[in-house]
Design a binder for these strands. Sequence first.
DNA 1: GTTCCAACATTTTTT
DNA 2: ATGTTGGAAC
Length: 780
Amino acid sequence: MTGSDDFDAFEAAVPLSQRAMAARPTPYLEDLNPAQRAAVEALDGPVLMLAGAGTGKTKALTSRIVHLLNTQRTRPNEILAVTFTNKAAREMKDRVSRLLGGMEGMPWMGTFHSISVKILRRHAELVGLKSNFTILDTDDQIRLLKQLIVAANIDEKRWPARMMAGIIDGWKNRAWTPRRVPAAEAGAFNHRGTEIYEQYQDRLKSLNAVDFGDLLLHVLTIFQDHPDVLAQYQRWLPYILVDEYQDTNSAQYLWLRLLAQAHKNICCVGDDDQSIYGWRGAEVGNILRFEKDFPGAKVIRLEQNYRSTEHILAAASGVIATNAGRLGKTLWTAAKGGEKVRLIGHWDGEEEARWIGEEIEAMQRGTRRMDPVGLDSMAILVRASHQMRAFEDRFLTIGLPYRVIGGPRFYERLEIRDAMAYFRLAVSPDDDLAFERVVNTPKRGLGDKAQQSIQRAAREADMPLLEGARALLAQGGIGGKGAGQLRQFVEGIDRWHAATLREHNHIELAETILDESGYTAMWQNDKTPEAPGRLENLKELVKALEQFENLQGFLEHVALIMDNEQGEVGEKVSIMTLHAAKGLEFPAVFLPGWEDGLFPSQRAMDESGLKGLEEERRLAYVGITRAERICTVSFAANRRVYGQWQSALPSRFIDELPAAHVEVLTPPGLYGGGFGAAATPMDQRVASADVYNSPGWKRMQDRATSRPMSQPRESKNVVIDLQAVAKFTTGDRVFSTKFGYGTVQGVEGDKLDVAFDKAGSKKIVASFVVAADRADDVPF
DNA sequence: GTTCCAACATTTTTT
DNA sequence: ATGTTGGAAC
């Protein structure tokens, strides 16, 4: 444990009242605009800093910390500064230390989870744990739950462990211990939810383990049940700062409220318009209610945006304005003019990827209208990760360098988790979950039967699995070739454990463990294409050990910090999800896939209704505001999703973009313009698509019966894979375009009239001929 | 105990 | 389309 000195420092801390409030020079204040300055100087009492996108939030936050120190109000170890991610914590630390000219120890700056671990290690016994508890990740959590579910005789097929894990996470996010789960939730998980939850918590306790949710929940329990402990922390931590307050869940909110209720020096920073984590328990309500929760709170709005041009800001504001129940901000910028937000429609997803690829290359070269833009300055932000594939495929084809941000993280890879399990066993041989994970990896001839015997032996004698296995071996309870191998495994663990105690070179030890266990050999003998990559990853893992003094230290670190530093070099376009883009900024941003159902996501709307839609809209807001100078929104009429063709209407968010700040692009050729978006004013653009009853659809269905196909699904918008070429007129201009759908009433060869109507008023009529030139695209 | 195939799911992601 | 997983066949 590293934290004990902090606690001692607290005990010795001079009471606040005795500290002089000396005025020292404050050059950092000169750098701030009036709102930022107000937020920095309001040091006492509750403060809500409402910081819109790109308004210098981190600057204000870090300056505030420096100001707290500089005015001698408090000392570095008395400031509690919480963030959500390790990355954010790291950035804050860096910036504070830069302002201070050298780092002063700020032990209480970190994520909710890392700070909770620190507190929990100190008081573990108050919730029935030992101070050296292990932290389980999602995978361990699910395996444990699966055991309980099977033991409870529940059909794991119909009621998967993953689902139960989700339910438990949700409950923990709301700070509900098994006893506090409200009666209304009794029906969860086939009426067995609370029962399993309780068993799960018991099991964790007996394993001396906690999951991520527990870190907060246990601390909360301690604070609630032991007022003396709470009072101590309130005294130790007289100043509290919270970043990204709009993303706090109920448990975090309670955690903060308890700590802050004595001195009320809490400064929460956030933006209700950027709350995009509702699906993992974040409560926008926390930020909306702040003034009620903390009476007399100062609310300071940071509204000057330093990131984006006028048009981009106006477009984002226009979209977000549709949401109800906002605290409300009016962002403005001194940067007038610039490019309007560009909007373009495509025939299908591949076309969209092709166009964006070409556009990126053009921007890289520079055009008449703009100077060259580097690849590092460009990003493609998608709603769902499966959208990335089309871009990767295309960019590989044209040789455009790209990097995918997010995705499966290093420490979540199979081989890394296996290796970590070996390390965990070496450090604490009693770690049953680690034991289970690797007893038969690589294959040791220990299948279900053998493992069950080990489990039984261990449970009967109430000992860890390793000891159970040892006992079983002693009494000859395991037969065949498995016995020899299990003996080797057990002896190996003993040997490695002894080595960790002898302060051996831990890097060498790690290599030894992986070699002696046969794990490295397993991948070396594997001829599948991914094996070499996995071996590479293992090498990287061992390399990462260099930064730590021993295996324990490394494991502790990894349990909480599951992110990977990809120190990739070279100019590359970034591809990531909108969620991953939060907090980032790029001169040029592409926002593809703005189609109803994809974005806003159908599922979000089905599951959370209007709330879900509003969160999607905030996501759109986040997306647009990532852009500094160029923002390109696009959509496609047809898209292949999981091997199925789907058609969709342009996203309703497109209609919400204020027309005055949007430039509708029409690329050369027949493609583009999708539904007439390129040609018609925003308020006139619509398409409808009931084709089920059309002869064309009937005919396609007939054709389909001869070959297997998926049933046409209940959907309003259905792809017609016959291509329609349309001509239509707006004002004095005539456009032609290709359509994926419309109100189709004919078959191939027919002349068709399509009425584009919005809210019943028909405004544009396009006549077109249904052609069969895309017949090979017909999915059946 | 291992291998193979059919069934299944597939928004977003941190700790 | 694709990758994972559970159960049956070997």
